[in-house]
């Protein structure tokens, strides 16, 4: 069982994000980190490979400036190798462009299954994974909250409005996993040390044969403007006391909900 996990490397989400005033792209300066949302996919892949009794997990990422720190985190968790696509031409890529690049990178390695998160923390279009599936001619199951391989086929519990559906699919396939699908392990000290020597292949747009087809210049969307949203009026904030409960009840009466 060989599994490719798409891992996005994103600006540290604990730092307030900002947009470049000229391009309106998200500022991706500074060190990038592994998107937390993708740690679930990495863990899922490691567990499935374990259960299958063999194979390896390959991490695939597209990121600026040959960034590998997030990939190293995934390698430290136990993935075997990484593929990074990094190229100035990719600045300002939209989701479809990103999907074209990741699909081409995935094709450079052998896989039975592709795993991604349902959506990233920074861009959260949530469309990249299924675009990848369509480009690779794969079936896809999005919003998986449980994933197993049974008799060589994928078996998934997929979230629905009402509850969940049990879905099966032949392999190869693509699955997007929700947070909470598994408990991601923390990299061990040994894992962190060995991650440093695991192979990461870096590819350019030309290596993938996609020159002139991807990146900001080939993305269909344009930013028109960015403005501050209307702020809500500051409300009344009080410390807990018997009087506070009385005031809250008064507020609820005024809203006619009681």
């Amino acid at each position: 069982m060989n599994i490719c996990v798409c891992v996005k490397q994103i600006p540290d989400p604990t730092v307030t994000p900002s947009l470049d005033p000229n391009t309106s792209n998200l500022v991706r300066a500074g060190k990038l980190v592994l998107d937390d949302s993708d740690t679930f996919g990495v863990e899922m892949a490691l567990q499935l490979v374990d259960a299958a009794g063999g194979g390896e997990v390959t991490l695939v990422s597209m990121a600026p400036n040959s960034e590998v720190s997030g990939i190293r985190t995934g390698l430290a968790m136990g993935a075997a190798k990484g593929i990074l696509v990094s190229d100035p031409e990719l600045a300002g890529s939209d989701a479809l462009s990103t999907a074209k690049v990741l699909a081409a990178a995935i094709k450079t390695t052998e896989f039975d299954l592709v795993i991604t998160a349902t959506e990233s923390t920074d861009g959260y279009t949530g469309t990249t994974p299924v675009q990848i599936a369509e480009l690779l001619g794969l079936p896809s199951v999005s919003f998986a909250k449980k994933v197993e391989i049974v008799d060589g086929a994928l078996k998934v519990e997929r979230q629905t409005e009402a509850g969940f559906d049990e879905v099966t699919s032949p392999l190869p396939a693509l699955v997007t996993v929700t947070a909470g699908v598994v408990e991601p392990r923390y990299p061990s000290f040994k894992g962190i040390m060995s991650a440093k020597s695991k192979p990461v292949t870096t590819l350019t747009v030309a290596d993938l044969g996609l020159s002139g087809q991807v990146g900001g210049a080939n993305s269909g969307q344009q930013v028109v403007s960015v403005r501050k949203a209307e702020a809500r009026q500051a409300g009344t904030i009080i410390e807990d006391s018997d009087d506070a409960i009385g005031q809250l009840v008064g507020y609820l009466e005024q809203l006619k909900v009681i």
Binding site: D94, A95, L96, S97, A99, Y124, T125, G126, T127, T128, P129, V130, Q131, I132, A133, E134, L135, S140, S142, F143, R158, Q159, T160, E161, S219, G220, Q221
Partner: peptide, 21 residues
């Protein structure tokens, strides 16, 4: 769930972008 999947598949088929959220 299904709207997002359908839009993503169509976008890749037609090779046109999507605007989301």
């Amino acid at each position: 769930y299904d709207g997002r999947d359908s839009a993503a598949r169509l976008s890749a088929r037609l090779s046109v972008g999507v605007i989301t959220n």
